[in-house]
């Protein structure tokens, strides 16, 4: 089965799977040796790492990127311009309140479908699509009430020899934790808010615990925040494509959406429900969209906010991160 790499939660894994292909969440880490693009001033480290990863070679038939931000848009252009891998740039509208925006997203799904067919996929019938959506695309129908709140994809991480693609989409549909497991005693419950994480960032959760905290709300990209809404079985059977649009485009809150107030509604509900006492705000240097939200988040937040700006996987990051975390937890205890 051919693999399709994708890097945005607005790309429905079910859609790829229904075309008979294997969706694979692309979580980059910088290529060995000199980065091709990634280290340039002004380049978002995540976008740069994605470009480096794709240009260095990924084991996939194609890659799907989205227009969620300028950096990703331009990254996709560089991948196409300089690389060999077929790349599909999916236009995910920033506006979301109009029927036209919804219609554009739906049309983009269809267009993505045609791309997948060109790569060897097969267009699914509505019934086939509904089955994949409702039964899970790896045949798993169990939903865990108490799924771990860790990184989506971590549970089934199986890197290839290049280490650049993680076959981890299963976890996307495993759970919608409404009641996360209670944190260990004395650990301060925290929320992790931000955009996408690179592979090494999985260490962050352990660092938080060593410093005395526990992430009870993962609101990063690829975490709980970007899980699609549960599919309505009736709607999924009557118009599965429309239900995909509802669950993804209609439901996922994100910083690039205009307006983006729903992000705060989503956060507010869960911060209150889970007793979160502090927010860890994780952003990349040169990421304008998340960076611009920081002061608003600080003003809005009912709990203190710790800002982490990162350039990716540089060696000095760990001690800096640990220092900030410790200071933050000292403050909260």
């Amino acid at each position: 089965m051919k693999t399709i790499a994708y890097s945005s939660p607005f790309v429905p894994a079910e859609w790829i799977a229904a075309h008979g292909m294997s969706p694979s969440w692309l979580q980059p880490r910088p290529a060995a040796g000199r980065p091709l693009v990634g280290a340039s001033r002004g380049v978002c480290p995540y976008a740069g790492a994605l470009v480096d990863a794709v240009l260095s070679g990924v084991e996939a038939a194609g890659a799907v990127m989205t227009t969620a931000c300028d950096q990703m848009r331009y990254a996709a252009a560089i991948m196409e311009h300089r690389g060999q891998l077929p790349v599909f740039l999916m236009n995910v509208p920033s506006t979301w309140e109009t029927a036209a925006a919804r219609g554009l997203y739906r049309d983009e799904l269809r267009r993505l479908g045609r791309f997948l067919v060109r790569l060897g996929g097969k267009e699914p019938s509505p019934e086939e699509l509904a089955e994949v959506m409702l039964e899970g695309w790896l045949g798993q129908s169990e939903r865990s009430e108490h799924a771990p709140v860790r990184r989506v994809g971590q549970a089934q991480r199986s890197p290839t020899k290049t280490g650049r693609i993680m076959v981890g989409g299963t976890a996307l549909r495993l759970s919608h934790p409404t009641t996360p497991p209670p944190p260990q005693q004395k650990l301060v419950p925290l929320a992790l808010v931000g955009g996408p994480l690179v592979e090494k960032d999985s260490d962050l959760f352990e660092m938080v615990e060593r410093a005395g905290g526990c992430v009870v709300l993962d609101a990063t990209e690829g975490g709980e925040r970007t899980l699609p809404a549960p599919f309505d079985p009736e709607r999924a059977r009557s118009d599965p494509l429309d239900e995909l649009v509802n669950a993804y485009f209609g439901a996922i809150p994100d910083v690039f959406r205009r307006p983006n107030g729903r992000l705060y509604e989503w956060l507010g509900e869960r911060i209150a429900a889970r007793g979160v006492r502090g927010i860890l705000f994780r952003r990349y240097l040169w990421c304008d969209l998340w960076h611009a939200e920081l002061p608003r988040l600080r003003q809005w937040s009912p709990v203190p906010v710790l800002d982490f700006d990162a350039v990716g996987e540089e060696d000095g990051a760990t001690s800096r991160t640990v220092g900030r975390l410790e200071a933050f937890l000292e403050m909260l205890r």
Partner: peptide
């Protein structure tokens, strides 16, 4: 993104904005 981010900040500061999409 720079303008989109700054404009969202403006909207939050109380300046209503009509957003229109360019694909």
């Amino acid at each position: 993104d720079d303008v989109a981010a700054i404009a969202q900040r403006l909207a939050h500061l109380g300046f209503p904005i009509l957003w229109w999409e360019v694909p």
